[in-house]
Computed example of a mutant assay.
Amino acid sequence: MSCHAPQPAGCRPGCGACCIAPSISSAIPGMPEGKPAGVRCVQLDANNLCRLFGRADRPAVCERFGFDPHVCGTDRYQAIRILSELESLT
């Protein structure tokens, strides 16, 4: 039994690529300075699920990120690669 809220439509449970690959400049509970690209968010649990999903203290940038097959690819590894490439362009 999971204590996590349902994931967004299309989101692959256990992926976590969006919580690892991109940098996040806003504060995250447990990471007041945000997080650099390629660093695992402290709110990502052992099952690669966000502990803050559906909570009011989830950063707005995380809340706005949604599943997109062009960004998330066909699996977790492709999502990390695509998001890392996009991050390097910004």
Rank of each mutant, 00 (worst) to 15 (best):
Q7S: 12
Q7H: 13
P8D: 06
G10K: 01
C11G: 00
G14R: 05
C15M: 10
G16D: 08
G16E: 11
C18E: 11
C19I: 09
I20N: 02
A21Y: 01
A21V: 02
P22N: 02
P22I: 07
S23Q: 14
S23H: 09
I24G: 01
S26P: 00
S26M: 03
S26W: 00
S26G: 04
A27D: 13
A27H: 07
I28E: 00
G30F: 07
G30V: 09
M31P: 00
P32F: 07
E33I: 05
G34A: 04
K35R: 13
A37E: 09
G38R: 10
G38N: 12
G38Y: 06
V39E: 14
V39W: 03
V39S: 07
R40I: 11
R40D: 06
R40A: 09
C41G: 10
V42G: 13
Q43D: 02
L44R: 03
L44W: 03
D45S: 13
N47R: 12
N47P: 01
N47E: 15
N47K: 14
N47C: 08
L49W: 02
L49K: 05
C50L: 07
R51L: 15
R51K: 13
F53A: 14
G54T: 14
R55V: 03
A56F: 10
A56G: 05
P59H: 06
A60M: 11
V61K: 03
C62L: 02
C62S: 02
R64D: 12
F65V: 10
G66M: 01
